[in-house]
């Protein structure tokens, strides 16, 4: 099963490397450098999992999260916080994020969380289709 991933982060090097690492694992990743760009992409396509940096210039991660939840309630979001702030992570969780990962993240951990988020999304989608 292909997981459609959107990676939102303003650090170009980070996005680039992450994209490469996902690709080498046969997981296509679309990337966005800002919240606005991400929301535009989400309007166009249906992503399974969004990896969203909390602290970005322009629109802040939590605001992006809110809008994603409004547009695509089934899309799972994993918050990426460099702000260590459990606060921000917690706040994200309360806004409906699937989970959060502290920067600098362990790639395997992130990968694991992405897989599980995708599974939940699939479950939710089929539940909705049945119900």
């Amino acid at each position: 099963m292909d997981i459609k991933i959107l990676l939102v982060d303003d650090e170009f090097d980070f996005v680039e490397t992450m994209t490469k690492r996902f690709h080498i694992r046969k997981m296509p990743v679309t990337s966005a450098a800002s919240g606005m760009e991400a929301l535009k992409l989400i309007d166009e396509q249906d992503f399974d999992v969004v990896i969203l940096d909390v602290r970005m210039p322009g629109m802040d991660g939590l605001e992006v999260l809110r809008q994603i939840r409004a547009k695509r309630p089934l899309t799972e979001v994993i918050m990426l916080t460099g702000h260590a702030s459990l606060d921000a992570g917690m706040q994200g969780m309360s806004l409906g994020a699937y989970d959060y990962v502290l920067k600098p993240a362990d790639f395997d951990e992130l990968l694991d969380k992405v897989r599980r988020a995708a599974e939940r999304k699939a479950l939710n989608v089929s539940a909705q289709a049945r119900g």
């Binding site: 980070f14 992450m18 690492r21 460099g82 260590a84 920067k103 600098p104 993240a105």
Partner: peptide, 10 residues
Amino acid sequence: NNPLAIIKEK
């Protein structure tokens, strides 16, 4: 943290 994240990913 951000540079560290990049170093780690690299």
